[in-house]
């Protein structure tokens, strides 16, 4: 029981003291969990981050769930997740209440008018950073563009667009495998010993072609 509360308060501190989620939380997590508590090694923490990025949901929360699970199974993961979200619940609720009440005040309204412009600029930065990280080849650029246009001009729900992108990924993989298989088959028939190398090279160019389509 004591360890469960320890989990809760460790993540409460992390959630309450770090601004911004995701990677900005990594130094704090490292300090608290690797150096102070010795709950995980740094490698493990980075592994959790890697998986936390490709599981649905908020990355920082995913990492806390992982660590809680590692320490104390399911109940541990619940306590650490609760710890991570508690500060947000308290602080944001209070601030939201405050903001709603004071919105009719002229000065607050002007301040919000200025803040809106900053938020636009901040969001633009977010998109640019994300594009740099995720749009690295022609295929990715096409997917990004199509997703953007579809969500702008068609009523297709966001959820469906995400699912469609996942399906495209699996199709691309299958096409790549298919080409690789047929090429290596041809290579063995021709009796070439370096068939594998040829196949690899061809699979790569196949991927590129797939991207240009």
């Amino acid at each position: 029981m004591r360890e469960l509360f320890e989990l809760y308060f460790a993540f409460f501190r992390i959630g309450g003291l770090t601004f911004g989620g995701g990677l900005t939380m990594l130094p704090m997590l490292k300090h608290e969990l690797v150096e102070k508590k010795n709950w995980v090694t740094e490698e493990e923490l980075l592994d959790y981050y890697a998986v936390g990025q490709c599981t649905p949901g908020i990355i920082a929360v995913n990492v806390s769930t992982f660590i809680g699970y590692k320490r104390r199974n399911i109940i541990g993961s619940i306590f650490s997740t609760l710890g991570m979200i508690s500060p947000s619940l308290i602080i944001v609720s209070i601030l939201a209440m405050f903001l709603e009440q004071f919105m009719s005040n002229q000065t607050v309204a002007h301040a919000v008018g200025g803040i809106k412009i900053v938020v636009c600029a901040l969001m633009l930065c977010t998109v640019v950073t994300m594009a740099k990280k995720t749009v690295k080849n022609v295929l990715a650029a096409i997917i990004c563009g199509v997703a953007c246009l579809m969500s702008l001009f068609t009523p297709v729900p966001t959820v469906l667009l995400v699912i469609a992108a996942a399906i495209v990924g699996i199709i691309v993989l299958k096409i790549g495998e298919h080409k690789k298989a047929s090429v290596s088959e041809a290579a063995t028939k021709g009796g070439a010993n370096n068939g594998a190398a040829v196949a690899d090279k061809d699979a790569n160019s196949g991927d590129n072609k797939g991207g240009q389509k």
């Binding site: 749009v135 990715a140 997917i143 691309v172």
Partner: peptide
């Protein structure tokens, strides 16, 4: 493979959201 394509799609979706915010 599916995350390789989900990520750029999400970037596109966020771009749309940012256009809406503007």
């Amino acid at each position: 493979s599916s995350f390789g394509t989900i990520r750029p799609a999400v970037t596109g979706l966020i771009a749309t959201a940012v256009i809406g915010i503007f």
